[in-house]
Design a binder for these strands. Structure first.
Lengths: 126, 126
DNA sequence: GCTTGACTTCGAGTGTGCTCCAACTGCGAG
DNA sequence: CTCGCAGTTGGAGCACACTCGAAGTCAAGC
């Protein structure tokens, strides 16, 4: 049995496609994934763990560019952890604002929904 | 003084660009905007009101395609209000799910933030 | 030993939602 | 009258994040 997971297994696990996984590696979000004797990718635990964070970053709307900035900090060593922290904290703030904007905007749509329900109720009682 | 607002005024009011406003009209999200004697758009109250809803739909992630479906229902008359209501309710559900996914994903990032704070505190006390 | 299926690379293509350019028109201020 | 500005059109271009096609490799199962 081979060490590590194949691209297909990681795709299944992360919800990304195999295409996307290769592309993430290509653009530098993932470090070069080790290959087995046949040249096939074998994702290590740390690769999958990184993907865990990366997918959450993406899912919360962080642009790939900024994810890459973060990863480059990670690669540069541990001395820049304050900078990494700041990047994450800033993103956190962005996401919180995002959530509250969604809630605010949804309220407008909710009012519309209420209005339609009113129309339809009125029709009903005609 | 002319009736209605110019494209620039509506842009300022809605936060969309003039380019986008013309494009919305072109793709059918807005009914053809009446022109003044010089051929310039004059947005009526109802156009601006529609934009109010449209921008909230977009801001909450509704694809333009689906917005268009809604607008086509509006154009088709009042008999399909139940269908419009369903579309809005479905979108509402989507947005609520979106919010809770953001919260869930943010929690992962928060854990990372906490870890970095831990590292940095430890460093501090070295 | 052949087929099947998952993998490889490279580069091109796609969908979405704008965004902009070029060339032109018309209005108001000075 | 001229300037500058805001508007017009049609069509091209762009950023982003994938997504896919083609052609080939390899190993396992029948």
């Amino acid at each position: 049995m081979e060490e590590g997971l194949s691209v297909g297994e990681v795709a299944a696990k992360t919800g990304l496609t195999a295409y996307t996984l290769r592309w993430y590696e290509q653009v530098g979000l993932l470090d070069p994934i080790p290959r087995d004797h046949a040249g096939r990718r074998r994702y290590r635990l740390r690769d999958v763990e990184r993907l865990d964070l990366l997918t959450k970053m993406r899912a919360t709307g962080m642009p790939v560019r900024e994810m890459l900035r973060y990863i480059e900090l990670v690669r540069a060593g541990t001395h820049n952890r304050r900078e990494r922290l700041e990047l994450l904290e800033q993103h956190r703030t962005t996401v919180l604002r995002q959530i509250s904007e969604l809630e605010r905007d949804l309220a407008v749509i909710d009012r519309k929904i209420t209005r339609y329900r009113g129309y339809l109720d009125a029709e009903q009682t005609d």
